[in-house]
Design a binder for these strands. Structure first.
Lengths: 272, 272
DNA sequence: CAATCTTTGTGCACGCGTTCACAAAGGCAT
DNA sequence: ATGCCTTTGTGAACGCGTGCACAAAGATTG
């Protein structure tokens, strides 16, 4: 999952709607849209929950924050619910979006159908490379970074997507914020610092893989019949073991069994 | 953030390490790697927390689950911590990964440097389109879906990335699982159902934007000086208002002020 | 109209995650 | 060696999110 519930005092629950619920509304909306296309008139919380991959009690509680939109003994009216959730999420209006950084990922995002289909309109593609300027990507001509401020103010854009290399992300972010952007979706592997009032959500592909690797390793370790207790300072992975740990500070060394010191590099961990 | 902490009894905390902590370890690792490149020998929890964008108390508690790797009065040894976290995440070994669905997004993923740099090796690219077969993407020839099972078993792949259209995702998922994949990173906008023991993490670009839109709308609404209380059944968005809500079930209608019924479509919400 | 059946909406309890705040631990200067 | 200063590691309190379980509400049937 894209992590990104940062900065924003735990009391974030906007308008009494818990953050966790907001994050699930798009899920419900998608399931409801699918039902709507099949002309299904009503759904029970059980059916809809199953389609959205959540618990039915959770779903009912989520909807209770929006209001009483169901009918006991029957369920929820699909069309009506689609509208209510869309309205709550702000999808009944058009959101112009700019994408900055038209590399492989930026181009893929520009072509991604899921944006346009949910009320998001790609207003502009921006890149720092002059040779890209004017070239159409997904039918939209790429514009140079110099135009950034003008594009944003002219189009009244409030949502920006950053798909630049990590090194350029903070700088781009600063310019976006200065130009009036108040919501940022960041694909660059960096922590962005933004002023109060600006929302940042982060999608990091490699982080997701690393989390999977953790669980994968654990599964493999359990298969080997290792004891449940963790063994700090001792490798859990069966084979493919790499260089021993670098030398910890003196005090820590004395605490641990003296492993063969070898300040080698760590092949698996390279610069981003 | 990519949501994806599904299915897995709340007692998921693998080996005593809380899920929330695991999700932050890659963040710490990235910050530490950057410090390592600058040859910084030690960091305090305060400095590292700031670099990773988290609270220092949280960071210390996170590290406490791994063991006592710090030195009081000094801080943490950068190199040592890099190794310990890498080992905990399972990054000291090589993880072959297959990417299924080589469209715009799949190609972008194949080119993404963040994978290879963290111990993940793209073992194969797979697509159902025969005309793609053999064509190199990011230096790797695309193979046809028919080879899927063979590729996975031959390479001992346990992590799969799904970047296909939504319609094909579940089918691909089933084949991956049957072939031995136990961890899946899903970019398709669908809920995947998998057997027990298979981990799925989901990255949904449009969901992230929808969550941003929610907060953006709320900001705009507050600017208009509206009262803090929510007004169910009344549009909050200033202009750009679309069709009125579809007719709710009879009972619900009586509860609400009779809005002008108009079973129109909802322009902002279209099929995925 | 009354009885029954279905499904919502929610009060309540529990557990995880976050944060505070401080004692313990180690470095460093004298 | 002794005392001071810095920073870790963690006990404890708090708040959010989840799931259970049930009463209330409405549909439906006879």
């Amino acid at each position: 999952m894209a992590t990104g519930r940062n900065h924003r005092p735990a009391t974030s629950r906007s308008r009494g709607i818990p953050e966790a619920t907001v994050a699930r509304l798009p899920l419900y909306l998608r399931a409801l849209t699918a039902l709507s296309e099949r002309s299904v008139p009503t759904v029970s919380s059980e059916e809809l929950a199953s389609a959205a991959g959540v618990n039915s009690a959770k779903l009912r509680k989520d909807f209770s924050y929006l209001g009483s939109y169901g009918t006991r003994g029957v369920g929820y009216d699909v069309e009506y619910l689609v509208y209510q959730i869309s309205r709550e999420l702000g999808l009944t209006q058009d959101w112009p979006v700019v994408i900055v950084g038209i590399g492989n990922l930026g181009a893929a995002l520009a072509n991604y159908g899921g944006f346009a289909s949910r009320g998001f309109r790609v207003a502009a593609l921006i890149d720092a490379d002059p040779s890209l300027a004017g070239k159409p990507v997904a039918g939209i001509p790429v514009q140079h970074t110099d135009e950034l401020e003008k594009i944003i103010s002219d189009n009244g854009v409030s949502i920006g997507v950053i798909a630049t290399p990590a090194g350029a992300a903070q700088q781009v972010c600063d310019r976006l914020v200065a130009a009036g952007i108040t919501s940022i979706l960041n694909f660059a592997p960096t922590v962005l610092s933004v002023p109060e009032g600006v929302d940042v959500r982060k999608v990091d592909l490699s982080i997701e893989l690393q989390i999977l690797a953790f669980h994968e390793q654990r599964k493999a370790g359990e298969d080997l019949g290792g004891p449940p207790g963790r063994r700090p300072g001792e490798g859990v992975h069966p084979e493919t073991d790499t260089a021993p740990p670098a030398a910890p500070p003196a005090a820590a060394v004395t605490k641990r069994p003296p492993e063969p010191g070898n300040d080698g590099d760590l092949p698996a961990v390279m610069p981003a």
